[in-house]
Design a protein around this nucleic acid. Structure first.
Length: 378
RNA sequence: GGAUGGGUUCCCGAGUGGCCAAAGGGAGCAGACUGUAAAUCUGCCGUCGCAGACUUCGAUGGUUCGAAUCCAUCCCCAUCCA
């Protein structure tokens, strides 16, 4: 599939962390990459122009949410998701698999697929691997995710095995269904490794999916409440079994420290709602750790969120002003904090890529954690 | 000058004899947030403390076993009449 070649362009001599480029029909993605999340066809509080300005190369959207509203037919009629939301760069769509997990109270899983009760109006909706593919075809995303079954933490071995095996069967169905689509060559399909927190299952899942030869691989079912060292251990366990010439996408991660640690362990792609969600709730990332901008101690702090940040918010506005906006309930507060947090992660990844290029990612990582306060982290 | 209605914890506002440190909002303070059911949610919000104790409902005095609630006087506020 020439539309989606992935090249590992450099491996850090110090750490083995890798640098790459994923070519897509809507442009190149330089990895390791952080992908802002735009579930409902918008990265909340951000315009596409602003996303371009802060250096986003690819964003995420969601099958389940867009299926419910406005519906994939409408988006197809609009010319596809890129045109509908006026975002010309690559888009990755999640399959709805995560909603199988996060909406566990209002869905039922069977072998054929999952019946959801819409969180919007309670109506019953059915999503199967085939339906998920069809919806993602209508959306026209560059990268489609297989419809998987994500498990919670903790999770017993039998349940994890069950979910993993179903994920594999569903991955095969996704692949078969996608192969028949007109867009089979212009939309890439990623498989998703599951297996909860069991080494044997994770390794098995990585192997099974590798044999199925996907364009790239999601690592799902992590960052679901487990302690970080457990997640890091899982990454180390499976990475030797992940195809070296395919992009590896750690789904739903994460915080600044998790990104650095993920890259250290061979992850190429990340996405996370954390940056934009905590931004709307009044918390900012900084290289020193979290900064709760709405706290009273910043009422008369006329410096920027972060002194050496190059984002629009930091170049023009003070902590005192942004705090005021939050206290006043003004949406500009959420917008400025979102711009900052996204730019923070995108810039962190730019710095990570530069460090790998120069064979000093180990030094970079050490300097990062020397400065970053983990005691009040996410 | 007269009539009527009022004065409740930072603000608004419920409460008309015990179940009241006093509903409910708001404001304030803090916390949570990781493939987004989130511009959301949670906690605290008289004082000291574990329990519990203590001081509060315009002021003063009274009735009562018991008062934010009843009575008296006074001080303020609002509206209306002169």
């Amino acid at each position: 599939m020439p539309n989606f070649t992935f090249e590992v362009t450099k491996t850090c001599a110090q750490t083995g962390a890798r640098l790459g480029v994923l070519h897509t029909p809507h442009g190149d993605i330089h990895t390791p990459v952080y992908m802002p999340v735009g579930t409902a066809a918008t990265v909340k509080a951000m315009t596409p122009r602003e996303l371009m300005e802060i250096g986003a190369e690819i964003i995420l959207s969601n099958t389940y949410h867009l299926h419910l509203r406005p519906g994939e037919d409408l988006i197809r009629e609009a010319g596809g998701l890129h045109q509908f939301m006026a975002w010309p760069k690559p888009i990755l769509t999640d399959s709805g698999g995560f909603q199988v997990f996060s909406l566990s109270g209002i869905r039922k899983i069977k072998e054929e697929g999952v019946t959801f009760q819409s969180h919007l109006d309670g109506s019953r909706r059915f999503i199967s691997p085939e339906v998920s593919m069809d919806i993602q075809h209508a959306l026209g995303s560059d990268i489609m995710m297989a419809f998987d079954v994500c498990t919670a933490y903790p999770c017993d071995h039998a349940t994890a095995k069950d979910a993993m095996e179903r994920t594999h069967r569903w991955a095969a169905r996704c692949k078969a269904h996608h192969a028949k689509a007109p867009s089979a060559d212009t939309q890439a399909l990623f498989g998703i490794v599951q297996g909860a927190f069991f080494n044997d299952l994770r390794i098995e899942s990585a192997k099974v999916l590798a044999d199925m030869d996907f364009i790239g691989y999601g690592i799902g079912g992590l960052s679901v409440g487990e302690p970080k060292p457990i997640m890091y251990d899982m990454l180390e366990t499976i990475m030797p079994y992940m195809p070296g010439n395919k992009p590896r996408y750690l789904m739903g991660v994460g915080s600044p420290d998790c990104l650095v640690e993920g890259v250290m362990r061979g992850v190429d792609m990340f996405d996370c709602v954390l940056a934009t969600r905590i931004a709307r709730n009044g918390t900012c990332f900084t290289r020193a750790g979290r900064l709760v901008i709405k706290n009273a101690k910043y009422a008369r702090d006329f410096g920027p969120i972060e002194e050496d940040c190059d984002c629009y918010a930091c170049r023009n506005f003070s902590r005192a002003y942004i705090r005021h906006l939050f206290k006043a309930g003004e949406i500009t507060g959420a917008r400025l904090a979102s711009i900052h947090n996204l730019r923070f992660l995108l810039r962190l990844m730019e710095d990570v890529r530069a460090a790998i290029t120069e064979d000093r990612f180990g030094d970079f990582r050490k300097a990062f954690f020397d400065k970053y306060d983990l005691s009040r982290n996410f």
